[in-house]
Design a protein around this nucleic acid. Structure first.
Ligand SMILES: Nc1nc2c(ncn2[C@H]2C[C@H](O)[C@@H](COP(=O)(O)OP(=O)(O)OP(=O)(O)O)O2)c(=O)[nH]1
Ligand SMILES: [Mg+2]
Ligand SMILES: [Mg+2]
Ligand SMILES: [Zn+2]
Length: 581
DNA sequence: GCCGTTTTCGGCCCGACTGTTTTCAGTCG
């Protein structure tokens, strides 16, 4: 089995868990977690670096030892240390760490005193009432563990415990925020955490509220939060923070702070954890302390009312939430070299949309009007080609008719231009699904892989690169084929794909559908470095589909993209120049 | 296990909530 970055990261996380549950030094555990994060955040396949005999110990959090371990994983497909840990520990042991409220210390006690080595063992121990008599446990702990176990058992069946898509998370978060904003004394309530960082999946919801009544206010907010009608269980509830589990939904954390700490609290709860830890470490070097109440020099608070003043205190520019992953943003902010991230206002059009000519729901005029009303100057009509039979893909004759129809509709339009396009399948041999004779009549093509996802990595890469050699190839659609939470990306060497795109002057799509977000953030960054422009496109199948642009932009921003890095920020004139090969 | 224009050893973020605790450890964000 070839080891890709995700595999290496998984192995390191696994090692970290085994070390943690066996009481290893917490910083050693963290070293493995940090290494996992580093590898995971890379666009390049580490395996390719190993093959090229490149130095790995220069990567952040990777020293001599972990570099050697990475090479072992790449060369043999496994890590002897992990194999040893697996052999030494009972199979279900790590599951115990998934139980809310159980960490390495308490698992250690349960193991030693009661022989608990799996969730089943734990269930029996709880039901027998043996847990309450353990040192450091009691009746309440036992009951709480029992509840956490039940939640886990239930969640495992219904997948409630897994991370959810960003758009789904928003569906839970926005009404809850409205609920909090309606509480007396609340002057502000904002989303934080991974949702605010626009991560493609969200584990739980995090929010910050400001209360103008320091006496009674916070308790009132906590009570209202716990009383929200979609709350299934109040997990914890204190004076300034509470955690609830929503029915058929995620958990939610709320933090309430006074106005003067809003910036620091929002910063804390926005994270990421790695970003926080890093900034706090930097603060220490400067003789200060950062917490959720502000920046402190001794007892004196010197910043923290806003995020801007917090960063400014350290000589940094404001870091947009999407960048806060500790992948170089803190250094860039200090050097005043942060990118000016692309925004919705920069977008001049959409380059991937379907109509009822294939599997879309609306006609040309309706889609044009939808694009115009969103302030766009152009919309590319890119219905499917014939290979996608389930979507009534177009053959050459039907595409010709559609081209004529677009011309006719354009004549009657003002303030918006429809571009003639097609989402053309890339066939297994790398040829395109329609003849050049019809493709040459188009303004652009979105070329996509919709079949044979299981090709070996080299063959898949070759297939895509060969397709790019076709002079009518314009944009590579949803480049890795991933469906978040449903389908892994197909095996492909994206480093080569990006280089090939750069050589040929073609573009990569960032499909904005919240189930795709493909290119992902890492590859956006790599594309930018290679000088390849990214088309952020909605793949709309209806007028409303155009509104997923903001999800695509979230991912583009996570990938450090500026307006100049995005193809469809160009005016129609500039775009047409760029589309000529 | 990583890291270093103040260190190659000795640090590694800081605080809320819970429960069991006579003063705090464990877990989590
Ligand atoms: N300083 C500090 N902040 C933390 C720590 N753990 C979490 N945070 C902050 C940063 C996180 O973004 C924020 C919310 O925590 P979550 O566990 O909900 O993580 P996040 O929302 O980033 O990801 P998620 O999608 O929920 O898994 O709290 C920590 O150990 N130290
Ligand atoms: Mg969260
Ligand atoms: Mg949280
Ligand atoms: Zn499409």
């Amino acid at each position: 089995m070839p080891a890709h970055n995700a595999d290496i990261a998984r192995i390191f996380r696994n090692v970290a868990e085994y070390l943690e549950i066996n009481g290893a030094n917490a910083f050693r555990v963290r070293a493995y977690e940090n290494a996992a994060r580093t590898v995971e955040s890379m666009a390049r396949d580490v395996a390719d670096m190993v093959a090229a005999d490149e130095d790995l110990s220069g990567l952040p959090g990777i020293g001599e030892d972990l570099a050697k371990k990475i090479r072992e994983i790449v060369d043999t497909g496994s890590l002897p240390l992990l194999e040893k840990l697996r052999a030494e520990n009972p199979p279900g042991l790590l599951e115990l760490l998934r139980v809310e409220g159980l960490g390495p210390k308490r698992v250690g006690i349960l193991r030693e005193k009661l022989g608990v080595e799996s969730l089943d063992d734990l269930r029996k121990a709880v039901d027998s009432g043996a847990v309450r008599d353990l040192e450091g446990f009691g009746e309440k702990s036992e009951a709480k563990i029992g509840r956490a176990l039940s939640a886990l058992e239930k969640g495992r069946v219904t997948h409630e415990m897994s991370r959810m898509r960003l758009d789904e998370a928003e569906g839970f978060a926005l009404p809850l925020l409205d609920h909090i904003r309606a509480v007396e004394g609340v002057v502000r309530a904002e989303p934080a955490g991974s949702l605010r960082r626009r991560k493609e999946t969200v584990g739980d919801l995090d929010m910050v509220a400001v209360c103008d009544d320091p006496e009674k206010g916070p308790a009132r907010v906590m009570d209202a939060f716990a009383a929200y009608d979609r709350v299934e269980e109040v997990v914890s509830k204190g004076e300034t923070r509470a955690t609830v589990r929503l029915r058929n939904g995620p958990s939610a954390d709320l933090r309430v702070v006074p106005a003067e700490s809003f910036g620091a609290a929002l910063h804390y709860l926005t994270g990421s954890k790695a970003h926080n830890v890093r900034l706090r470490g930097m603060a220490e070097d400067q003789g200060c302390k950062v917490n959720e109440y502000g920046v402190f020099r001794g007892e004196e608070r010197v910043a923290g009312e806003t995020e801007e003043d917090l960063y400014a205190f350290f000589g940094m520019d404001f870091i947009p939430p999407e960048l806060r992953e500790d992948t170089g943003e803190l250094e860039a902010a200090r050097k005043h070299r942060l990118p000016a991230l692309v925004t919705l206002a920069d977008m001049r059009g959409d380059l991937h949309a379907h109509t009822d000519a294939s599997d879309g729901r609306a006609g040309l005029e309706e889609m044009a009007e939808a694009a115009r009303s969103r302030g766009y100057d152009y919309l590319a009509i890119t219905d499917h080609s014939q290979a996608v039979t389930v979507a009534h893909g177009l053959d050459a004759d039907r595409l010709a008719a559609l081209i004529d129809a677009v011309d006719r509709v354009n004549d009657g339009l003002s303030g918006i231009t429809l571009l003639k396009g097609c989402e053309v399948d890339i066939l297994e041999d790398g040829s395109l699904d329609l003849p050049d004779s019809i493709l040459k009549r188009l303004d652009l093509t979105v070329c996509s892989v919709h079949s044979r996802f299981g090709l070996p990595r080299d063959a898949q890469t070759e297939r895509i690169v060969r397709a790019m050699d076709n002079p009518h190839f314009t944009i590579l659609g949803h480049p890795t084929g991933r469906l978040i939470g449903k389908r892994e990306p197909y095996a492909v060497n994206m480093e080569r794909v990006i280089a090939a795109a750069a050589e040929r002057g073609v573009f990569l799509e960032l499909n904005a559908h919240p189930e795709r977000l493909d290119l992902d953030d890492r590859h956006c960054r790599a594309a930018k470095e290679a000088g390849v422009l990214v088309a952020v496109s909605t793949d709309a199948h209806s007028p409303g589909g155009l509104d997923t642009m903001r999800f695509g932009l979230g991912q583009a921003r996570r990938g450090w993209l500026e307006a100049k890095d995005v193809l469809n920020t160009r005016s129609l004139r500039e775009l047409k120049k760029l589309l000529k090969r």
